[in-house]
Computed example of a mutant assay.
Amino acid sequence: MVRFSGATEGGSESRGGTGNVTPVGDWTPPACWYEPRTAQEFSKYMEDMYTETINTPGQHSYAKTAVGQMRDMYKDGKYKNYNLDQADEGTWWVAVRDESRWMEPEAQVCNELPFWLKNGDAPKVPNAVTPQILAELAYNRIKLPTTEVTLAPAEVTKVNLPTWAWLDKTKFTDVSVTAALDVGGVHIQATTTARPVSLKLEPGTADAETYPASGECTINGGTVGEPYAPGKANRTPPCGIKYLRSSGNGTYRLRATVTWQITWTGTGNPNPTRLPDGTFGNDQAVTVQEIQSVNR
């Protein structure tokens, strides 16, 4: 069974939580794949599935019949007792679906019944697990830090006042997940790494300007944007926003999205290889007030 380790549960420190990376473009990680199981693991898998199906109240009779026939084939039919007497000679290969994408059409293409392969033989099915497929599965399990930018002014900004924006470089560093498979004669692994490369700011209103004009702030020396400091008030921020109209009694929803460059290394692939870039972002409230003048 594929095992994952690394930043799958918020391994990158963040304020306010973590979330999954969203691939740029039409690419998505595999929704299903085939992976090996030992004879002992497959035996338990089949017996557990049979017992659960038979004993589930209200289970349809056709489901019980189908599972019973499948169990008979591997236990007393085409195969004998799950090939337990050949456990050192090969492995069972079974279809696995991503639990979060169970009903998607892409998850239904792995429809081959479990099959036996002797050690050293290559499976002749699409989506049989490889180091690259492991890397793509790891991609789908990366947890990225919430994209909450630091603003100056922090609480309330003013109309026509440039607002500086940046990300704390100590909280936005490389994030990696490793996927490994060590079953029978199959020993492969892959590590997928996400590296932040740019920040896109969307002010939440057309009455605003961004710095730079594209709204894309690039990484500079490991920092996204530049922290504000006394003495910089007359400078144009390298990354920021200028609101042209008050938010009134409400707020604007500033959206900050980080683009992450994603690569993988692994068995047979020591040099980082690109996978599609990914993004992750969120909204934060910004209050904009008119600058008050005093008449004498």
Rank of each mutant, 00 (worst) to 15 (best):
T279I: 15
G281W: 02
G221D: 09
N234M: 14
A208K: 03
I241W: 01
E226Y: 06
G268W: 07
E209R: 08
E226C: 10
A229S: 14
Y211V: 00
G222W: 12
K200W: 01
G266R: 10
S246C: 10
A233G: 04
F280Q: 08
T259V: 10
Q284Y: 04
P272R: 12
G266M: 08
R235Q: 15
A213W: 01
T218Q: 14
G266Q: 09
I219R: 11
T287Y: 07
P238M: 11
T259W: 02
V224R: 05
G250C: 11
I241N: 00
T257L: 02
I262W: 05
T210H: 00
P212L: 04
T210L: 00
I262H: 05
Q284S: 10
K200L: 08
N269W: 05
E209Q: 13
G204K: 05
G231W: 00
L244T: 09
I219Y: 08
G250K: 13
G266W: 09
G225L: 07
P272M: 11
T287N: 11
V258W: 03
L201F: 03
G250S: 14
L244Q: 13
L275Y: 09
T259S: 06
T267C: 10
T251R: 13
V286N: 02
L201D: 08
P237F: 03
T205W: 06
A256K: 01
T267N: 07
G222I: 11
Q289H: 14
T236Y: 00
G204A: 11
G266D: 09
T205P: 02
T205V: 12
E209L: 07
G250F: 09
T210N: 00
P227Y: 09
E216M: 10
R253F: 02
G278H: 11
A285W: 09
S198Y: 09
P212E: 05
T257E: 13
L254Q: 04
K232G: 04
T251G: 06
A206G: 11
P270E: 12
R255K: 14
Y211N: 00
N234F: 05
G240C: 01
A229G: 04
Q284D: 03
A208G: 04
G225N: 06
C217Q: 07
P212V: 02
T265S: 14
N269C: 12
K242C: 01
A213T: 13
K242P: 00
S246R: 06
W260Q: 06
T273R: 14
T273G: 13
G266H: 09
Y228N: 04
R235D: 15
E209I: 00
N220M: 07
S247Y: 08
S198R: 13
R245N: 12
L254Y: 03
P212C: 06
G204F: 10
G278A: 13
P230T: 04
I262N: 06
N220Y: 02
L199K: 07
G278T: 10
C217M: 10
D207I: 03
C239T: 02
R274H: 14
N269K: 15
R235Y: 03
T279N: 15
L201Q: 05
W260S: 03
R255G: 01
K242S: 03
L201M: 07
F280P: 01
Y243A: 01
L201E: 08
C217A: 13
